[in-house]
Simulated assay, not measured.
Amino acid sequence: MKEKKERVYFENIQYHIIRILEASRVSVKICVAWITWDVYAPVLKKLAARGVEVKIIYNDDNKNMQSEILGEVDGVALFPISARNYGSLMHNKFCVVDDALLITGSFNWSRTAQSHFENIVILENHYELIKKFNHEFDDLLHYFESYKYKIKIICGSADDGSNHLCRSHAYHIGVLGGSSGIDESSTVSVWKICNSYKHAQKLSATDEIFINSTLLGVGDDYEHYETTYDIEVMREDYLSERRKVEKIRQYFERRHNIRIHAVGFVGIVNEGAYLKGYEYPESALQMIWTDMYYRKIIPSEIYEWDSDDIEDLIKEVNESSYS
């Protein structure tokens, strides 16, 4: 296994980034908010000309208008990202080179950043960390594709008693019920949840066996402590994790005929205090996976006190788990 190496720079950062890019052999994945294109484009053109695959994610705004100088270059793919929320940015600053080296830090690849107090950290052969950045990069590519279609789901609830249906945005959450018995029987349901008022409507429910272990892949993970976690293991580990997510998506589309935006389960959020007898149990719908397009929309936890509908959802899921 190659030795892990770390470096940090506070000055001449642009010089060090270009040197690293020039040494790349297979692939360069750049995910940086703003780029000085007339500085980096010549370097990236040379990389593409010698067969290095170059992908660039950046914030879609006027500061990156010069990106067009790479628009027709074979081997270079551009992905301008517009955030869903007004005023939000694609504000990452990282680059993965040959799946073996990571550049990250405060430094934007812009002309003005040269005059700021900035930093970059360079990590070599930190494969478990690089895998996480590869996931973020590919999740943003998925976001880029999803943004083109801008599918909007409307809540449509009349639960507030008014004459008008709720016009808030909504999303679909697959809920994995608790399993029991030798066949791990459980109920899986899909709910449409309102972003603003947390109205909740059950769209589908099925009784399943062995579904939690099948979807979540219990026992499929690599035994990292028994094998060397090198670049090849990292790549296979990464692909395994991507396949797991795709399996979850396909299950809900096939079995429930619904495209989901997150998957969660009902859990106790104050488990420590509850087990010690200090508090009554407080439950929430806790996400284990969220589609990148909805990651800044769907909270990681939706609490039973958020609305009467959520309280009913949690009660129903718990009752199905213990029935």
Rank of each mutant, 00 (worst) to 15 (best):
A41S: 15
V97Q: 00
W289L: 00
H16L: 01
Y251K: 03
M292G: 08
I13W: 00
G217Y: 02
I209C: 11
L89E: 10
M65C: 13
I258K: 05
L140Q: 11
N134S: 02
L123P: 05
H169C: 11
S115G: 04
V54T: 03
S186W: 03
Y229L: 05
K192Y: 01
T214H: 12
T227N: 10
K244E: 04
S115M: 07
S213N: 15
S88T: 10
A33H: 08
R111Y: 12
G178K: 12
E316F: 03
V269A: 10
L141S: 02
M1Q: 09
Y280H: 10
V32Y: 08
D308W: 06
V39M: 11
F265E: 08
G217L: 00
Y222C: 02
M234W: 02
N257L: 12
L203A: 01
I260H: 00
E223G: 08
E128W: 09
D230R: 10
K29N: 13
N12A: 07
E68W: 13
E136R: 11
V218F: 15
R84C: 06
Y238G: 00
K5I: 08
A200V: 03
G181I: 07
Q250Y: 05
H91F: 04
T104R: 14
D159Q: 02
S283Q: 10
K152Y: 08
M65F: 14
K5W: 05
S180Y: 14
M90S: 12
C31S: 15
S320E: 13
K244L: 10
V97R: 03
G272H: 14
N318Q: 13
L129Q: 10
Y86R: 14
V26E: 14
I30G: 05
I56A: 02
E316Y: 06
L129C: 08
Y15E: 15
K202P: 02
S88M: 12
L21S: 02
G71C: 06
V54R: 00
T290K: 11
N134C: 07
I260Y: 00
C194G: 14
S213F: 07
V8G: 12
S323P: 07
H172P: 03
Y127T: 02
G71I: 00
D60H: 14
E145S: 09
H126N: 09
V97I: 15
D220G: 07
H169F: 09
G178S: 12
I153F: 06
L140F: 14
Y86F: 12
L176V: 01
C155Y: 04
R259Q: 12
D98E: 08
D139N: 12
N59A: 13
V190P: 00
S180Q: 13
I122T: 05
E253R: 07
L101P: 02
H142T: 13
E124D: 14
I103C: 07
H256L: 00
Y274I: 03
S180I: 07
N134F: 00
A77F: 08
K202T: 01
S82C: 10
F117A: 11
F117G: 04
P42R: 09
W289V: 03
F144P: 00
I17V: 15
